[in-house]
Amino acid sequence: MHGKALPYLLLMPATLFLCVFFLYPFALVAFEAFTRDGGFTLDNFRTMTGNWKFPVAFWNTILLAAIVVPIQLVMALLMATVVSRLETGRGAALYIFAIPLGISDLAAGLIWLAIFDQSGFLNTLLSNLGLVDRPVMFLGYQSKLTIFVAVVLAEIWRATAIMMVILVAGIGLIPREYHEAAEVFGASPWKRFVKITLPLLRPSLQTAIILRVILAFEVFAVVAALGGTNFPVLMGETYNWQFSLQDRNVAAAFALLILAISVGLTLFFLRVLRVPKEARI
């Protein structure tokens, strides 16, 4: 009896912590999203979707995630493969690749702002090379596309390393013998990657993708720095409703929507990249 209860007892503090600092605030937010002036209502959601900015913010966020995450996945896989192959300097390479991770997303946005700004590095470079007569407005309200590209670049620069770190760890878990066996049995490097590394990397891919997708739907500071109000995203709108428009209930509705998307996508990737128990390493 004692032995069986022990694991649960040991989990108690963490569970309590979660309840107090996660479930309770979550319940509060959910409550706010579904009430107004003390009564139950779906008005907050109607207000949210009825706003002209909502579809723009919604599709911007989705488009951003749909473009950034696949690019990052491919890059992270490539980098992780290269880093894993290194015999010397592996630690250093990992460290250098991971530097952007240590920079907050707002700072990252500001760094890229310094590049694309009217008086930024890029403009200075272009005019010094004589390619432009006067500074180009890369991030103006008419240039949605360049803002988008700048945000994509900044996001890739900032958050690819987190996927890479997870994948490097995952690759390290695959016993070398599998690669050697594949090599002996005729698989080219590309075939080895597709037939051995990728399938055996599935658990790590799953973690990396889920983590990154959730982060992608929470994108905020980078967009705020580079696009300001010219490029609305869901998280930015949440902030807007909470602080500029002072409507906590609609902000809560936004928060719930983002949560729902994250949970939905997490379940989707858990299912799609599931490894059957008998086929694990």
């Binding site: 013998e177 599998y178 594949a182 399938p199 055996l200």
Partner: peptide
């Protein structure tokens, strides 16, 4: 191989 290296997947 010594540890067989039978592909688990």
């Amino acid at each position: 191989f010594q540890n067989y290296a039978v592909f688990p997947h």
